[in-house]
Design a binder for these strands. Structure first.
Lengths: 197, 197, 197, 197
DNA sequence: CATGAATGAGTTTTCATTCAT
DNA sequence: AATGAATGAAAACTCATTCAT
């Protein structure tokens, strides 16, 4: 009963599964998770409703796989940003990271919002989000330490930086208030973060 | 076909309406908006399902009113924090504000999460959240300026401070990662914010 | 969640609940349990699909209530048959009981079949059927003993009689084979049962 | 549009068809007809879902073939029981037949239940069951008459015996009530049947 | 012959909203 | 104003059967 999920091996099937995830991703992003139904996803993916349940346990399962894609999309470029570095000039690094963070938000605008939202209604999504943050914090911290940065309080510093970048990116991408000059704000945030390190 | 939402004048009615909002607030906070149905709200409020629609247009309307309560609950104490001040010693102010922000989060823990989540599925909620931030930024900025703080970039500074405090409070209240020492992190955030002003 | 079942107090509601059970009863009897869906039941009862779930947990719940009706219908007349007796003349009693048993079968023909069938797919139904038999055996046995019949092996005798009557009734009502003269067969069964007592 | 059901001639195919019937038999017996799906049957038989429709018209067709197996299984040993007889000593025959009937029930316990159940939802199954009984009655009657038993009412007597044995076997195998001593009951049934002949 | 992915109609169930009382 | 029974559209999910490979 429970194990009727197909792990597609053939190329055509893999493509189909990915089409479903993509359709789910787009629809969830556009209309929100609760405003999207499986029939729509199937239709958007160009498959029947039935086969959706051949690849996924249920609707939430699609979301979870979409979440993984999202995480990879957002996480990887930020990490790879530090790969090329040999010394630690935060006056250069911080603006780059902020830029990348904002870009990631912008590129996945709607999905970020939806996924973030689900955090309140779904434990599993919340857990994955938390572990994404953890992984980012750990990876970045290790990178810094390997480049000679003192290990003391490095987790706390990096974690603070991450939530600040996220907040700012979220702010700039979604909440865009008229009374704020975002260039100025970005400069303030940048200086603030440099002051940590 | 006139809109038939009552603006209850009598005390008994006002109480009843408030009981419904309170019940909605608690239930939404506990189980999320989509996992709560109107019958439950009515029952928890001790009224009939039908009369809910005498006081509210629809289910979302209850949410919106609950949102207002939330906003008042969170907003007022932070603003009043600055009321007693006569000079601007940020080394004192910043920790107080952070403390207040975390407390507000803690006291309204679940509701914050739910409301924040709805931001992605509901335009109106998103708009109210945005205007809450705007109002806070404006009020606080004016307060600072009236106390002699230079007006230049004050909106941006205050706004940055607000989102940072929010992020940190959210972090400390919900996401509580094992690998983070929150005392240290709070100190880092405090210093960081002081550095802005 | 689980306790949203209405226990209707008002006459109109009780009637409605009974209409649903009756509709279920008839439809299950006519087309079988698995070939009947809730929408049909609702339609036949002249109610909406939704309200069915106001009165019953699920489709099977309707069946269970129908089963209770069936049991009462079949059981009561047979028991009351013995009520008027003051002495034990089995040459009179046995034909009467057979007659009543066949009549009960005939009157509830299709439902008996369906209910009996469900025994194989549903534990609860099987259990209720078993306890019906138990109750019948006990009641009849007590009755006989109170009228002076020796208590020794009375359960076994009565139980045997019950299953024989049931089998014969089932046979006569449903399976009606051409090569059998049912008058003769009934006489054989009658004599056979008299021989027990 | 010719009917495309294969009548498998090759040994491998015949085996495959029989594996499907066997799988169906076991699964239907275990979980009931409606709670078993064709994919499960195919999997249990070690074949693809598609090929099932190469050997059977539809799901019910599998059931029908399983029914035939069941009938042979139950029918043959009882008939052969009488093969060795040369005289008619019912005091010996009746207990043997009862014993065989109970054994057949016990060995095909679950399937009997399922098949019997289907009687209510499926005409064809009902018809086959009826003709099984007819065949048994006729064969046994002929046997008896050929051994010198008077032909008068022999069908009715034999048929009565058959349904009684069936009922008792069903009772002993499935319904096993605590308040019944089955040894005693079997003795009662035995005596009762001997009294017929 | 064989595979197993794909179909899509059909089923159960929920729930925001309405309405007779 | 108030009740709570009633509505019915909509949603998630299943599965017998077909079909491209």
């Amino acid at each position: 009963m429970a194990e009727t999920i197909r792990e597609p091996k053939q190329k055509r099937s893999i493509e189909k599964k990915e089409r479903i995830i993509k359709a789910g991703y787009d629809l969830f992003a556009e209309k929100g998770y609760f405003n999207t139904n499986t029939a729509e996803i199937a239709k958007a993916a160009g498959v029947s409703t039935g086969i959706v349940y051949g690849y996924f346990h249920d609707k939430r399962d699609i979301l979870v796989e979409a979440l993984d894609i999202y995480i990879r999309t957002v996480f990887t470029p930020i990490l790879s940003l530090l790969d090329g570095l040999s010394d630690l000039n935060f006056a250069t690094i911080v603006p780059m990271v902020i830029e990348r963070g904002v870009a990631a938000h912008r590129e996945n605008k709607a999905m970020h919002r939806t996924l973030h939202a689900l955090t309140a209604e779904d434990e599993l999504v919340a857990a994955r989000f938390a572990s994404l943050e953890e992984e980012m914090t750990r990876s970045l911290s290790e990178k810094l330490v390997s480049l000679g940065y003192p290990a003391e309080k490095v987790f706390e510093k990096v974690h603070t930086a991450i939530i600040v970048v996220q907040s700012f990116a979220h702010e700039e991408v979604y909440d865009h208030h008229d009374y704020i000059h975002y260039d100025e704000m970005r400069r303030i945030v940048t200086d603030m973060l440099i002051s940590i390190f």
